Structure formats: structure tokens, C-alpha cells
Simulated assay, not measured.
Amino acid sequence: MRPRSWLSRFRRERGAREWSRVADGAAGLGAADRRSLQPEAHALRQDLNRFLQITRPSVRLSQAALDALPLPAGTDWQWRPGFLSRPLSPSGMVSPENGQVLGDQVTLWHDCAKRALILRQLPNAEVTALARYGMTLEVMGFTGGFLSLAVDLPADAMHGLSPAHVLRLETMLQPERPLPIYARLNITHGPNTEGILREIDMRGAGPQVVEFDLAGIELNENRLEKIWLDLIFEKPQMNAISIREFIVSRHPRANF
């Protein structure tokens, strides 16, 4: 992408002029034309809002702090999801459906028929927090059998990924009451999806770290399609779990 090139500027200016004309004549449009244009307008507004959020100075500073974190030797990629770096709109969801998405990276999965759940983004009030925002999952009378948050990793997490890598998750999870929490790494390559499950050690007050050694799975490096992490909460009823940090990185195994 060359945003400052003449051709790129021309295309953006032409699109802006076209939408300006559409807006000027919106009052005279028929119902069918309005319905057909609204999805385009919503998609355009979403992309523009995302660009403005990502390019805010505070987000760039947050990325600089992430790049400066002490990570294992040889770390060649690190990432913090956008819901910890920039505000979401909407900032939460109440009584969510199974599979409902918040932002563009977080999906809530559950089988609670009463949907007694609230997921919302909140500013990180702790002085020591590096992330600008946190996320809190409130669980009331949970009657289901499973509850998890799925966080999609970006495409660049797969660039150069090989069985020689170890993926590392550093989190700061703060439940109101102790409960078992698991992290599962999922990698889709071709028709297969491989998973590695690890229990998160919730003892102590510091960050929690889990590692996923890819030597334990048969990974087809040439057919990588998707990678994501699940946070799985066991017996979560009448609890609230806050996510204050979520950093994913990768480094080569020590014997490589």
C-alpha cells in the first residue's frame, strides 16, 4: 500500500466526492436505493473509525511499550489484541447469543439458555497496567456446560510459523472468586484443526504465562489458514473475570 501516491489519493478523493454527492441527494432517494446503500455506508464508516482508532497517538505509544517488553530471547513476533488498546463501539454486550462477536477479534461461546452474561470493555484503572483498556466478563446464574472467549490472532501470526516455534501467552486475569481457567491454542491448516490445551496457573498476584510448543502437533506450514486462542472458564457462575492484559508472542524452541 502506498497511501501517499498520486493514484491512491485520487481514488480516495473520487470515493469521497461520490459519497458527498450521495449524501446531498439522500433525501430524494427511493426506499430501495436507501436500503441498498446503507450496508455500504456502515462498512465505510466502520473502516474509517478503525483507521482513526488505530492511528491515535495513544495507540502508537501502547505499541511502543509492547515492543519494549522483556520477552524470551529470539522473540520474532508479539501482539496485543485491539480490545486492550483502543475503544470498542459498542463497548459491551448484555445477554449475548452464543457466538456473538464484540469488536473484530473476540467471540463469546456458551450454552447458557438464560444468557445471564455481560461482556464489556472498561478503561484499565490500575497504575501498573500497560494496556489502556481491559475487558470484564460478568456471569450471573450460569446454567450451561461451557463458557469461553475466543480471541482471533492476526494473519501475520502465521507468517513464518513452523514446528520449531513456541507460542507464549502472558495474561493478567483477575476473577472475583477462584475458578479453573484454561487456554487452548487452535491452528487450522487445510482440513485439519490442531489444538493444544494448557491450564493457567492462577496462584500468585503477578501475570500468568502459558506456552504452547508446536513440536507436539503435526503442522502443515504451507496450508495455514487461521489461528486463535480460547480462554475456557470452568464453573463460572456468580463470578466476574477481568482481563487486564493479553500478550501473545512466539520464539524458537531452545534447541533450534
Rank of each mutant, 00 (worst) to 15 (best):
A68I: 07
G82D: 14
A65E: 09
A73H: 08
L48M: 14
V101D: 00
Q100S: 10
S58V: 11
P57V: 01
L44S: 09
G99P: 03
R50M: 10
L44C: 07
Q100K: 08
L61R: 13
G82Y: 03
V101L: 07
R60P: 01
A43T: 11
S91Y: 09
R45F: 10
I54H: 12
A73N: 08
G82E: 13
A64L: 15
S89E: 14
V59F: 05
F51H: 13
I54Y: 11
R80H: 01
Q53L: 13
S62Y: 00
P57W: 02
D47H: 13
R60A: 15
P96S: 06
Q100H: 07
D47K: 15
R56T: 09
M93T: 04
S58W: 05
Q78P: 01
L52Y: 12
S58M: 06
I54P: 00
P90M: 02
Q63Y: 10
Q100T: 06
S58C: 05
N49W: 12
L61A: 10
E97S: 11
T55L: 12
F51M: 13
P90T: 00
Q53P: 00
Q63G: 05
F83R: 07
R86D: 04
L88N: 02
V101M: 12
T75L: 01
G92S: 04
R86E: 14
A73T: 10
S95R: 15
D76G: 06
V59W: 06
Q78Y: 03
P57K: 00
T75Y: 01
G82W: 09
N98V: 00
W77M: 10
W79M: 05
S58P: 01
Q46E: 14
L69T: 10
G99D: 03
P70S: 06
L71E: 06
L52Q: 13
F51K: 09
I54A: 14
L69M: 15
E97F: 07
V94D: 14
L48P: 04
A64Q: 13
S89C: 11
R80S: 03
Q63F: 09
P90Q: 03
G103Y: 03
L48N: 07
D76C: 07
P87I: 03
M93K: 00
Q46G: 11
L84M: 13
P96A: 08
R56K: 10
R86Q: 14
V101K: 10
L88Q: 06
L88I: 02
M93P: 00
P57C: 01
P72H: 02
P72S: 03
L88F: 01
S85E: 08
A73Q: 13
A68P: 01
F83Q: 08
S95A: 14
V59L: 08
R56F: 09
L102Y: 03
